[in-house]
Design a protein around this nucleic acid. Sequence first.
DNA 1: CTGAAAGCGCTAACAA
DNA 2: TTGTTAGCGCTTTCAG
Lengths: 341, 341
Amino acid sequence: VPTIYDIANAVGTTAATVSNALNGKGKVSASKRARIIETARKMGYRPNLLARSLTQQRSHTIALVVPHIANAFYAEFAESVEITAQSSGIRTVFVNTNEDDQFCKILLDDLIARRVDGILLLPGGISVETVQSAAMTGTPIVCCLWEEEENVVTPSVGIDFIAGGRLVAQHFLELGHRRVGVVLDGKPDEKPHHHLRFQGFLEAISASGICIDPAHVQFGDSSAESGKKAANMLLQGAELPTAIFATNDLMALGALASIWESGRSVPGDISVAGFDDISLTAIAHPSLTTVRIDQAQLVEAALSMLFQLIDGKQVEIAHPPLIVPTFIPRASTGPYSITSL
Amino acid sequence: VPTIYDIANAVGTTAATVSNALNGKGKVSASKRARIIETARKMGYRPNLLARSLTQQRSHTIALVVPHIANAFYAEFAESVEITAQSSGIRTVFVNTNEDDQFCKILLDDLIARRVDGILLLPGGISVETVQSAAMTGTPIVCCLWEEEENVVTPSVGIDFIAGGRLVAQHFLELGHRRVGVVLDGKPDEKPHHHLRFQGFLEAISASGICIDPAHVQFGDSSAESGKKAANMLLQGAELPTAIFATNDLMALGALASIWESGRSVPGDISVAGFDDISLTAIAHPSLTTVRIDQAQLVEAALSMLFQLIDGKQVEIAHPPLIVPTFIPRASTGPYSITSL
DNA sequence: CTGAAAGCGCTAACAA
DNA sequence: TTGTTAGCGCTTTCAG
């Protein structure tokens, strides 16, 4: 692989001039520049970004860390980040933690060692210590969509999950449902991952004097499959819920499948609502009522925050901006009907 | 950010020794090593991988290039690559081309400029020239799952798509279907992206003397949404197909939704089969008959080929290994019944 | 306008 | 065992 020195030799000049010519910096006579560019092309020259980044102390690359790229929500988020960053001339690399805190630590260390300019960190099995130790290196980190308030160790941006949960509850209540079930990302006896969505939902439901049967809260891991399993559990009992809130769309899709397979209908027998508004809702039958997270707006906010940090500006940590989600009523929810089992 | 020089100063030694101590190379007295490691920790030392990669001429990183990370198939593939590579001590970064050849070219140049050790390239809107110009730099590139035979410019590994398509056709024929439809990734009047799957299917169907009504071939772009639209078209005509082959699972899921919405049932009225066996088939109702691509095996083969190239070994280009897909009959296909519309 | 020189942080011989 | 030296490929002053 030829270097600028090789080009310099070929043209009969020096590396500095080649560098200037190739980057359009400094003053290089038009004729010399032309010759340099031409021979660079002819020799198949490829700049070495490692070297450039080393001197410039800037890699023009950010990393997006997600727990599970196979989850449609994160994948869509990733595409959105890629596109937005690209338009600012920044490259994006995606890495996947598999929800493994150990691995995430290694990954973050690695990204920092590679001197990415900044990191966008989505939650999922990452401990606060891991984030903290990464943040201490001075590499700009923005946490996005964290649902645990301990996230305040770095600048962050999120959405108002509580409001989102509340919107679903209000919708259910307006439709006359009184026996509601939840498919929740989390584990029994632990703080659920989606605890804010749940909290908002629960508060609004409770406020109207309704209790949720503990058996009507089943747990999943945000995957469609887990949602289906959880919904299966929900359909076991004697008194079935007449409306189910799944804390993300993927689980809601699983719940739909489960309900259809049990021979019941949606929303005739049971209403279902999700959260996120991923594009896969396109294949839901019936179309899925959900809470929409405005990805574009979110990504925009997160990246502009990250870029600010990269530019050395301070960003307020204490009160992260919260984007307000919007409720999207569709066909999977309907009024409580007496025929519901 | 401290460097090994800072550590060397603090400990009262030299950079080389610090490097040796930190990397467990060379001979460093136990006591000195301990002191070095300790102060490195205390000073919050982070190695600079840019510098290391620059000297070593090796970044220990490979890149996976996919057209559309939001497509579940690619996302699952990506996770699989990440895990497999990780177990060999190799970092993986994902990048997304958005099926844009121009952008892909930029991306490949960038990865090469960053001196990734190798590139795994999945097809999708990438021109042969782009691949070729990237391959000429000498950066090891393995193409995986290309369905266009012009791909022979680099070593590659794929699956036997033709056999896969044939399996679906045979299944349909055994079930007695004679009016079959296809939801195909591609555009009218162009060679379809999934043309091998289609070819295998078509050959087997034709061999039994059956013709496919041109109106019974509709096009999509591999997304669930497009599958739904295409299926909608298929349901317009007077004579409906009694079985539909969607050339990937996502489109098959879309087709399912479309059929249910039209008030018909699967497989009672219409059978549906997909291709890939992505995990989202878990939410299909009924469970989706499909052709399984053994991701683990495929990724294994692709990576071992890539690693070989990285180690400087030659790899045969002419006859890429073809992994044989397996047919997975499930509940979305059933015998032709007279009641079918 | 052009070139010489220094340096980014680290590693890899080779001497001491 | 330790230190010296010389790069890796590129950018960036700063003289000429």
